[in-house]
Amino acid sequence: MNPKLNLLQVYCGIASLMVVLTHGNKIVAGELQQNDLYLLQIFHFGWIGVDFFFVLSGFIIFYIHQSDIGKPDKFTPFLFKRFIRVYPLYWSILGLKILVSLFSTAKDSIYQRSADEIIKAVLLLPQDRSILESSFIGVNWTLCYEVFFYCIFGFLILKNTKIYQTIIFA
């Protein structure tokens, strides 16, 4: 990575820590059944880390691939790199989650999910909001947005027109 971007690694680490602390806060509050415990409220702001990741991801994709804009021959390598970066690890973790769910008696087991939900989860297509809040599949929502962003940026690589630029920057 370009030495100028090293500080972004630090910011990424801070944002990751914020997200982990927020999720940890929710777990601890749930286990203690103390949602109003003041000490736990310290980490409530950690959701900002997710937004930061989205902004950072957009910046890095643009920074790295700005010279590819309007060059259709760069589209396939761009998509391949994005696919390899996201799907193999995601499918591995999702597969493990589904496997564990097969042996679970919890109300959120795989048996409670429709084929449509599973297919959307595998392909990283957006899910219904109720699934996001109540299902082990729902935690993939950030990757759904990331893949959507990759597709939009891919269109800019294919065709660098004013209309695509306007849509993307909007």
Rank of each mutant, 00 (worst) to 15 (best):
S67V: 07
V100S: 12
Y63F: 15
T105W: 09
Q66D: 12
V20T: 04
I84W: 10
H44T: 14
H23C: 07
F43W: 07
G49C: 04
G49A: 02
R113N: 09
F52N: 01
D68A: 14
Y11G: 15
V139W: 03
L40A: 09
L96V: 12
V86P: 02
I69Y: 06
F59T: 09
V139Y: 03
Y38R: 11
I93K: 06
F54I: 13
S16F: 05
I131K: 02
L17Q: 03
K97N: 13
G13Y: 02
I27Y: 08
L39E: 12
S67H: 12
S109R: 01
L21N: 02
D73T: 14
Q112E: 06
G58I: 03
Q127P: 04
F62M: 09
D108N: 14
L102M: 14
A106D: 11
D73I: 11
W141C: 04
D68Y: 11
L125N: 01
D108H: 02
L37R: 00
V122H: 00
K107S: 15
F80E: 11
L79Y: 11
P77S: 06
I98M: 12
L94P: 00
F78P: 00
V55T: 10
R129P: 09
G49K: 00
Y63R: 09
G138V: 00
Q33K: 12
S134W: 08
P126E: 07
Q41S: 14
L124C: 11
I98R: 00
D36T: 09
K74G: 04
G30I: 09
V100C: 13
N35S: 14
G24M: 05
Q41V: 05
A15G: 03
F53Q: 05
D73K: 13
G70Y: 07
I60A: 07
W47Y: 15
F59M: 09
V100L: 15
Y11A: 12
A121G: 11
G24C: 06
L89N: 11
V122Y: 00
I93D: 08
I69C: 09
L40D: 04
V50L: 05
E117V: 07
A106F: 01
H44E: 15
S16E: 03
V50W: 02
E133Y: 08
Q127G: 03
R85G: 08
P88V: 05
G24K: 01
Q34S: 14
K26G: 06
Y38Q: 13
F136S: 04
H23M: 05
W47G: 15
I131V: 15
R129E: 14
K74S: 12
G30E: 10
S67M: 06
Y87I: 02
K81W: 04
F53W: 08
P72F: 05
G24D: 04
F43Y: 05
K107C: 09
D108S: 08
Q34C: 11
Y63S: 14
Q34L: 11
F62I: 12
I60D: 04
M18P: 01
G138E: 00
D116M: 14
F83E: 03
F80H: 11
I131T: 12
V19N: 03
L21S: 06
H65L: 08
T76L: 13
